[in-house]
Design a protein around this nucleic acid. Structure first.
Lengths: 198, 198
DNA sequence: CTCGAATGTAGGAGTTACTCTCATTTGAGA
DNA sequence: TCTCAAATGAGAGTAACTCCTACATTCGAG
């Protein structure tokens, strides 16, 4: 009895999806139990019943296993689905809210655990900038499209950078994954940081 | 004949400073010649005439050797030295300009080479987020002080995040270290991204 | 100036993430 | 069932780091 996401796929693909999921589950379990640094790829492989070499066929590195993000694409899609006549910030806000409410409780927990893990391990925290740059770029493209500007124009990129930076600024270890905080960030951004008018 | 920075230090400290500088120089030379990934710590150690174990006493990792930043503290100090009655963005702009103009051509070249190296090596690029967070935090503290707000308050952090994010957004591989680009970012920020008023 | 205490260094052994290669297995399609 | 391509496992190899121990150098006190 294959799961819903798996319909229409051959046995091969289904097995691959499962292996991938198993590796991730086992890894996250071990990380939670013993810590990221104390868990070796060999142990993960053993728990997932694959060979170490197979591990690296599924994930390019131990870091990426944690960092690959299922959420970003959802957020982006939801952003693009917002009516074109909304101001960018409003569209962004709504898509954020929708992404949060659409998430199953399990998904939410998984995502929160993931974010906390990333925050707590310097190695992972570090490797996140690439993801951040990707996010900025995707958002910039979305913004450019929405405003009828050429993709990659500097204004859209500045804008996207500013929004992401604002959110980054308000998040801390206690509020890693909080819709409230992110909304608050957008509020401040929208108000144009009015406290610096000398 | 000790160099200027070295006066008033014992022989021990002076030697340490020199060793550290030598390691960095040799490393950057080798990176430029053969590439980052193709240069091993062993080779750097050999070129700097130290043992590999000693390398790790001077730098916690091969990455950090490249990432440690002499520029940030200068920028921060210069920011704090700006008259208190200037608007934050103006103060920021001036301190940025001053940091650039104060730099010797050699320093500028070194810094530019460093930034290009970081941009071109995924491993290094990734490890930069921690630096970025530090920058945001320092700027946020500076901003808070300047505005007479409690250190670490959320508005200052959002603001600092937004500014840094804006700059991050406008920089690309061709404009890694460009005062022009950064100034442009501040312009856009200051104007409040006026193109999203629906 | 000398001696003992810090401090710094070299060398080596060990761990782990990751790469490459090759032989074997397993699923897809005829 | 048979054949081909894709997936896996096993093993050897590399390089970044860690830890430990023995030796050398510098410093400060008497």
């Amino acid at each position: 009895m294959p799961a819903e996401q798996e319909v229409g796929l051959g046995l091969r693909e289904r097995k691959k999806l499962r292996t991938r999921a198993t590796i991730r589950e086992q890894a996250m379990r071990l990380f939670a139990e013993k810590g990221y640094g104390e868990t070796t790829v060999e142990q993960i492989a053993e728990a997932a019943e694959i060979s170490p070499s197979t591990f690296f066929r599924y994930f390019p590195s131990k870091e990426q296993l944690v960092l690959v993000d299922d959420l970003d694409p959802i957020m982006i899609r939801s952003f693009q689905e917002q009516p074109a006549d909304l101001p960018v910030l409003t569209a962004l806000r709504r898509s954020m809210e929708r992404a949060f409410t659409d998430m199953s409780p399990e998904q939410f927990d998984r995502e929160q655990a993931r974010q906390k893990l990333i925050r707590s391990v310097p190695e992972l925290r570090a490797a996140q900038l690439d993801e951040l740059q990707r996010t900025i770029k995707m958002l910039a493209d979305g913004v450019a499209e929405r405003l009828g500007r050429p993709a990659g124009d500097i204004e859209s990129r500045a804008f996207a950078g500013a929004v992401v930076g604002t959110i980054l600024g308000v998040l801390d270890d206690e509020h890693v994954f909080s819709l409230d905080r992110m909304g608050r960030a957008l509020d401040l951004f929208e108000a144009g940081f009015p406290f610096d008018k000398s």
